[in-house]
Simulated assay, not measured.
Amino acid sequence: MGMRALGSLLMVSSLGLLACGDPDPDFEAKREQWASARPQEYVIQTRFTGVAGSHMLYAVSADTIIAEYTSIKRFAEPEDWEETGDSPRVGDPVQALFDAAEGARRCDLREIEFDPKYGFVSIYYHDCGEEGGGEEVPCFAPDTTDVAVCMNQSGEP
């Protein structure tokens, strides 16, 4: 293979890795960033990618999920959200995102991105051969527990 072809191959390979985020993420450093930057209160919406497009919406205060909603509609409107009845309870949805992105050992982590300010996982995707999926965060609102701020943020195209 000539030098020009090798250079082109390396450039294309590098661009492919950049498109998928960090190919070898330092989860521990990002968890530490989240721990130091984490707001006392926040609202976060997560959406499963792949075949299942459902959403989860959480309001968190300290280490307690004080409100939890779900919607099975891919592009949820405010009236599509239903309270789960599972709150209040101790939990941190952001830690669950870290755990899920690091998990699925039988699959390849194909995409991972982190929020630049807070360090949480903003999107991840596992490729499991014929199937795959992940989660993304269409909405994160710090310093509030008002879930209405994220009910219209369903990641519509």
Rank of each mutant, 00 (worst) to 15 (best):
L57D: 02
S71F: 11
M1S: 11
C107H: 02
E32P: 01
E68L: 03
A96C: 08
G119H: 10
V149T: 13
Q153L: 02
C128K: 01
C107K: 00
W34H: 08
C20S: 13
T64V: 12
E83R: 06
F98L: 09
D80Q: 10
R74Y: 14
E77C: 04
A67N: 11
E135A: 14
R31M: 08
V12I: 13
A52P: 03
S87N: 10
D26K: 02
A59W: 01
S8P: 00
V60W: 07
E82L: 06
E136R: 13
A37C: 08
F75L: 09
R89H: 11
A141P: 13
A52V: 11
Q95V: 14
L18A: 13
T84N: 05
Y124D: 03
M1L: 04
I112P: 01
L10C: 15
A141C: 12
R89L: 05
A29Y: 00
E131W: 03
A76N: 05
E156S: 05
L109S: 03
G134H: 00
E77P: 02
E41V: 11
E113W: 12
I44D: 08
E79P: 04
E28M: 11
F98R: 03
S122P: 06
P116E: 15
A148R: 04
S8L: 10
V60G: 04
T49I: 11
T64D: 06
C20Y: 08
E111C: 03
A96L: 13
E135W: 00
E111R: 12
A148G: 13
G155R: 05
E82V: 11
E28I: 02
E79I: 01
I123F: 02
G50S: 08
S71M: 11
T64P: 05
L18D: 03
G21Y: 05
T46A: 08
I66K: 03
G133Y: 07
M151S: 07
T145P: 06
R89W: 05
S154A: 15
F48K: 04
R74H: 14
G91I: 09
D127S: 13
M151E: 15
C20F: 12
L57G: 09
M1Q: 03
V137N: 09
S122N: 07
Y124L: 00
E111D: 06
T144G: 05
R110I: 05
I72F: 12
K30I: 00
D146L: 05
S8K: 02
S71Q: 10
G85Q: 02
R105T: 05
Y58G: 01
E77A: 15
F98H: 09
D143I: 00
Q40P: 00
Y124C: 07
T64A: 08
R106Y: 06
D22L: 00
F98G: 04
P39Y: 15
D24L: 09
P93C: 07
E68W: 04
V94I: 14
M56L: 11
A62F: 07
A62T: 14
E135T: 01
E68Q: 09
A29T: 01
R89S: 14
D24F: 15
G155H: 05
Y58P: 00
M56Q: 14
A104D: 07
V137H: 02
P138C: 11
G21N: 03
A5L: 11
G91M: 02
L6P: 04
P93W: 02
R110P: 01
D115T: 04
S87R: 09
E111N: 10
D26Y: 07
P157W: 03
D24Y: 15
C128T: 01
G103N: 05
D143L: 00
T49L: 07
R89G: 10
A76W: 08
D24E: 14
